[in-house]
C-alpha cells in the first residue's frame, strides 16, 4: 500500500465519519462543527489531487464564511439538544432504509463495471491559480460577470426578507 493510498483512506474515513457524526449529533452546534471537519477533509482531497486553488477557496468560502454564518444563526436562535425536534422512530427507520438501499444499489453497480481509469495524483498544472485564472478570464468572463449580479440579488433578497417584519408592523 503506497503512501498516497494511505492518505486517501485516512481522509475518506475522516470525511465519512464526520458526516455520520453530523447527522447523528443532537446538538446543532456540534453538527456545524462536524461539518467543518468534513470540509477540511474534502480540502485535503483537493490538495491530494493538486487542485490547490479549490482547496484554499473551499476552506475560505465554506469553512470560513458559510459555516460561520450557520454557527451565527444557530447561536442567535439559542438552539441546543433540549430544543431539538425529534422525528418518530418509524419515519427515521424508513429514511435510513431508503437512503441505505440507494447507496447499496449504486455502489454495487459502480463496482461491477471494469473501467481502469486512473486519476492524476499530486501532479499536473490544471488546478494551479495561473491556469484557472487564464481560463476563467478568457473563456468564462460572462458567467463570472453574471455571478456578480446573482450575488447582488441574493444580498438584496436577504435584506428584504430580513426586514419584512418591520414593514408589516408599520401598516
Amino acid at each position: 500500500m503506497s503512501i498516497i493510498q494511505i492518505i486517501f483512506l485516512l481522509l475518506s474515513v475522516m470525511a465519512v465519519g464526520s458526516a455520520l457524526m453530523m447527522i447523528t449529533s443532537k446538538n446543532p452546534v456540534n453538527s456545524v462543527l462536524w461539518l467543518i471537519v468534513v470540509f477540511f477533509a474534502i480540502s485535503g482531497h483537493y490538495i491530494l489531487l493538486n487542485a490547490q486553488f479549490l482547496a484554499i477557496v473551499n476552506i475560505i468560502v465554506y469553512a470560513g464564511a458559510i459555516m460561520v454564518l450557520f454557527l451565527f444563526v444557530v447561536m442567535l436562535m439559542n438552539l441546543n439538544a433540549e430544543t431539538e425536534p425529534v422525528k418518530n422512530r418509524r419515519l427515521q427507520l424508513i429514511g435510513i432504509t431508503s437512503g441505505g438501499a440507494l447507496m447499496l444499489i449504486i455502489v454495487s453497480a459502480i463496482s461491477k463495471i471494469d473501467v481502469e481509469q486512473l486519476v492524476q495524483i499530486n501532479a499536473g498544472d490544471s488546478g494551479l491559480i495561473k491556469v484557472l485564472g487564464m481560463n476563467l478570464f478568457k473563456n468564462y468572463v460572462l458567467p463570472f460577470e453574471i455571478s456578480s449580479v446573482l450575488f447582488l440579488s441574493a444580498m438584496i433578497g436577504a435584506v428584504v426578507i430580513g426586514k419584512k417584519e418591520e414593514i408589516e408592523n408599520k401598516k
Binding site: 498516497i4 493510498q5 486517501f8 475518506s12 470525511a15 465519512v16 458526516a19 455520520l20 453530523m22 447527522i23 468534513v38 422525528k87 419515519l91 427515521q92 424508513i94 429514511g95 435510513i96 431508503s98 437512503g99 441505505g100 440507494l102 447507496m103 449504486i106 455502489v107 459502480i110 463496482s111 463495471i113 473501467v115 481502469e116 481509469q117 486512473l118 486519476v119 495524483i121
Partner: peptide
C-alpha cells in the same frame, strides 16, 4: 488512484446527505 474510489467516496457522502435530509 483509481477513479472508482473517488466515485464511491462521493456517493457515500451524497447518500449520507440524503439520509440526513430524510431523518
Amino acid at each position: 488512484m483509481d477513479i472508482k474510489a473517488y466515485i464511491i467516496l462521493s456517493l457515500v457522502l451524497f447518500t449520507i446527505g440524503i439520509i440526513g435530509v430524510l431523518v
